[in-house]
Write a protein that binds this DNA or RNA. Sequence first.
DNA 1: GTTTGCGTTGGAGTCCACTCCAGGTCTTAG
DNA 2: CTAAGACCTGGAGTGGACTCCAACGCAAAC
Lengths: 126, 126
Amino acid sequence: MLVADNATAPVYTIGECARRSGFSMDTLRYYERIGLIDEVRRNATGQRRFTDGDLEWLGTLKCLRDTGMPVEQMARFAALVRDGDHTIPERIRLLEAHRVAVDASLDDLAAKRDYISGKIAYYRSV
Amino acid sequence: MLVADNATAPVYTIGECARRSGFSMDTLRYYERIGLIDEVRRNATGQRRFTDGDLEWLGTLKCLRDTGMPVEQMARFAALVRDGDHTIPERIRLLEAHRVAVDASLDDLAAKRDYISGKIAYYRSV
DNA sequence: GTTTGCGTTGGAGTCCACTCCAGGTCTTAG
DNA sequence: CTAAGACCTGGAGTGGACTCCAACGCAAAC
């Protein structure tokens, strides 16, 4: 659930962040450990408190992940983001290369969907 | 390379079959072991000789595999095919369910491609 | 203020789908 | 005939990406 600091920016427990981001709590901790997400803010006793900014970044990660980018390349992207604005041209290059890959897999997937449809039609005709 | 029996149906060594199917030799042997492909014909000394029929089936497997079907479900499909024509209605059900999944992942992938495009456009605008 | 359950850590374990290996046999090009 | 290269088997190993565990500390609901 949401844990408001007071009237300021909302923060979320790891459980709530998991629910909202679509990653499991274990995966969130794992991603933090390997540097995919920056060190997350903690409350006084050390529990993680995710911000809306964290969630937005997790949305980007989810998109990259779900489109087949390997964790290692996501880590490179995360490092670029950490390194500041002068890495923007390189981030663009990375995302463009990835988009090319995604487009290719879209085409491939569509062709294979048609093959499956053909197979179904064939079975129906038997 | 192609190893013709005589003037009849062509057969292929595992290496050639790998080249043509897009699966590695190890994967072909693995698929045979777990029942994804029927026992492959052998020559006198026990080497595998794949037929065009085997290759066609491998094409189907490749399609299912590349569209994200788990090996276990492919094995179920293979078992249905082995069991004869009375399993055709069930094969249709299986393929239709899979096509629904493929359509969903096409939609998802397209949406995420757009998200990536948006990200690129944003970076370009900075 | 206590119980129920959420969160912490480091490290080990799991799952899937291959992939590799050793130690041998077979095939084929020259 | 021989040497290089393809193929055989059973079983072990790999890689990627988590996922689970134990043993503990905190939180928050009543």
